[in-house]
Write a protein that binds this DNA or RNA. Sequence first.
DNA 1: ACAGAAATCTGAACACTGTTAAGATGGGGC
DNA 2: GCCCCATCTTAACAGTGTTCAGATTTCTGT
Lengths: 210, 210
Amino acid sequence: MPAGRYHHGDLRTALLDAAEELIRAKGADGWSLREASARVGVSPSAAYHHFDSRDALMAALYDRLLVRLAERLAAAVARVPDGPARLVAYGRGYLRWALEEPALAALPAGGKRTTVVSRHPHDVLVAELDRLVAGGHLPARARPGAEFVVWPAVHGLARLVTDGHMRFDNDAEVDLHTERLTLAVLNGLIHEPPGTWAAARSPHTERLER
Amino acid sequence: MPAGRYHHGDLRTALLDAAEELIRAKGADGWSLREASARVGVSPSAAYHHFDSRDALMAALYDRLLVRLAERLAAAVARVPDGPARLVAYGRGYLRWALEEPALAALPAGGKRTTVVSRHPHDVLVAELDRLVAGGHLPARARPGAEFVVWPAVHGLARLVTDGHMRFDNDAEVDLHTERLTLAVLNGLIHEPPGTWAAARSPHTERLER
DNA sequence: ACAGAAATCTGAACACTGTTAAGATGGGGC
DNA sequence: GCCCCATCTTAACAGTGTTCAGATTTCTGT
């Protein structure tokens, strides 16, 4: 790891760190493999022993971010007592993260998932919805596929904000609006006419298939 | 416009067309200014007499797409009688478009808006929500800022699909799920406790300021 | 301890990119 | 008919992702 060494030690994560920092500073397109390599003190071609391509590096970085976000959301939710407030905390955590790191939150999907992510924000949401049902805050008949109603809403708000399509005056306004959105969706699920979507099949996700 | 001419005629829109087709074929990052210029039969630097940069071209293309989507949504909605079904038609139109042209739907925000877009999908949604209130399908007290609840939901579902995070088996499943999402949000707004969000200030949009 | 194999990194090269500057070309207004 | 200006070209620059042959280090088995 010191300057003199020929083998870096853990070049893979060092490159991920460098890329992450560059993206944070200059946006998702503002970094280059060469610049990241130079920052780590390594030749441009060294990266190809750890990643198939530049895009593969981004995909790996994306996976790392997902895990980090999932842990953050799980922690944020855990601080709140049972009830709809927990779902609000989920949404708020999601948006806070998007606001703090807009460049990272707007990272491209990365296409093919290389390794299965250990913990996904989606998992946290699923667990939270199950908890709402168990606590009697959400009717069991509305539960199937409910994550595919809440997830788009929260994710959509986050993307609209990071992409600059929606702007808030301050963080308090963001929280307030996130709460409104989350509770509206939850309320909508609660008041869903019985049996309406029983026949609907849920979409697929990286987390669901195999 | 024929091969022999020195002046192209309408190089600006020709470049936009070429870029659009390349993006449609090879993704948002799969096109280059040079390739688009070559396809139009013009030197690489000619584009700089019509656009400040590659990003500026993308921003202009993005604006053009927004207008096209807005017209499409307005037409889709116009075919449906008054009531919640119109909002469902809006969402369905949004998602159909995203499914048909995923590469274009996932275009980056483009940053600074250069010219004010003549007609924005957001405008169509606003008009639709006003119509719901006028027809008695949405309480007036839930109206303020309601577009910032519906928009994220629909937009979020579209992006999750175009980014490959959510996959459906066929178009019918997409429609069904879009309907569930849209109606859930609308129902949530209808059952909103009175006066809850009266103090909340709405976020800003390109359409709202000035 | 020593050989050989495997992993890791370098250096040079290729094709390609966005962007700029200086000059050629041709159409529109007086 | 003339000049001006928008338009386009040619040439070049710096920087990019990627590949390949070879140098260097660590690992493995005996």
